[in-house]
Amino acid sequence: MEKFEPKIICFACNWCTSAGADLAGTSRMKYKPNVTIIRIMCSSRVDPQHILWAFIQGADGVIVGGCHPGDCHYINGNYKTARRIPLLRRILENFGIESERLQLEWISASEGVKFVKVINEFTEKIRSLGPLKLPVAETKMKVMNSYGG
């Protein structure tokens, strides 16, 4: 059987986590290519619907990365994220999605090492969880598509 390669989306804020990912690159650290990054200005831009949409579209895991508490470029955006993500994790189970498939991490611009560690550990965690099987994915996708997604 072919080894399961999870598909993971990472929402990374422009000022900390994306810069941390850049630092990982500049330092030539290595991680698995399972994760692709979407850069947004602040982690608070991530709408829980974006995350659900990612799962519907076939993501096996989602990471949201922001600045450490107190370090937000936009004063307190990360505090909003810090409330939204745990809340979403609680209801994910109701959709048949293990809450571990969504992770929130504070990764600063200087934490290239942490970025790599988080990505690698999360990838392995999702690999052990196996592919996300949404029974109603097909239907949901049709519904979402009808909204013009």
């Binding site: 608070s44 831009r45 936009y74 013009g148």
Partner: peptide, 23 residues
Amino acid sequence: CGACIAACPSGVTQQRNFTDQQI
């Protein structure tokens, strides 16, 4: 920052060039 965009229940506010459609 876009914190308000993610909170709008009806999605009628958007961040220019970082719209929900784009994401």
